[in-house]
């Protein structure tokens, strides 16, 4: 799996993940409190400047932002038809600013940094006895490790279908895929415990 992180050495890359996440949270609060189109246009332009400072190039930026910009455009179109120009402008500028800032944080923070930050954020929860902070990193690693495995199993089940001349249906595909995958859980859990990865206390 390729992450959306881009290597680089811009100002945002050097900023600590916590500062970026806090900044993004503040920005989203601010954007939803503000209703003045002028301020929001300035905010959207600020978002553009921040995103442009990553120097990803037009093509790369468009590929990354296309899905969310399309969604915003459609919602804005609906708002324009139903509520008029003023509301549509507010919706477009607010969501575009937020999307650009969020995409900039994603592009400048590596997966490892994010996991470290989430583990640290989960520490208070650990003290309350809700989760073990170290489990979060472990589970994320497990998911990333097993996606390719599941895809190859999916392909094998498809092949088995065509070898027997059966049509592929959601049910006949999903059920063996799930049972085959979850049956591994005992072995994986035993392997984790045998290595003492979760053995604290």
């Amino acid at each position: 799996m390729k992450t959306l992180y881009v290597e680089g050495d811009t100002f945002l890359h050097r900023l600590s993940p916590r500062a970026k996440l806090l900044g993004l949270a503040m920005a989203s609060l601010f954007l939803f409190v503000i209703h003045s189109p002028v301020v929001l246009v300035v905010a959207a332009m600020f978002g553009c400047i921040v995103y442009a400072s990553l120097r990803l190039g037009w093509r790369q930026s468009w590929l990354r932002l296309r899905p969310i910009l399309l969604t915003i455009a459609v919602v804005a179109l609906f708002t324009l038809v139903l509520n008029g120009q003023h509301d549509a402008l507010v919706v477009v500028t607010r969501l575009t600013a937020l999307a650009l800032l969020a995409a900039a944080v994603t592009a400048t923070t590596s997966t490892g940094d994010f996991i470290d930050e989430i583990t640290r954020l989960a520490m208070p929860l650990e003290r309350l006895g809700l989760v073990r902070a170290a489990d979060i990193g472990l589970s994320i690693g497990l998911v990333i490790r097993f996606v390719p495995e599941i895809l190859s199993r999916y392909q094998a089940i498809r092949d088995a279908h065509s070898a027997r001349g059966l049509k592929v249906r959601p049910l006949t595909l999903a059920v063996p895929l799930i049972i085959l995958t979850l049956k591994n859980a005992d072995e994986i859990a035993a392997a984790i415990d045998a290595r003492g990865i979760r053995a604290q206390k």
Binding site: T3, Y5, I68, I72, A99, A102, T106, A107
Partner: peptide, 28 residues
Amino acid sequence: LLVLLLVAIGLPVLSGGRGGLATFASPT
């Protein structure tokens, strides 16, 4: 929750290769 976490940390795990914090800024 794990899937949402993977989205938040910038892995393109949603259908169509979507992911990243911007997904949480979408109207949907």
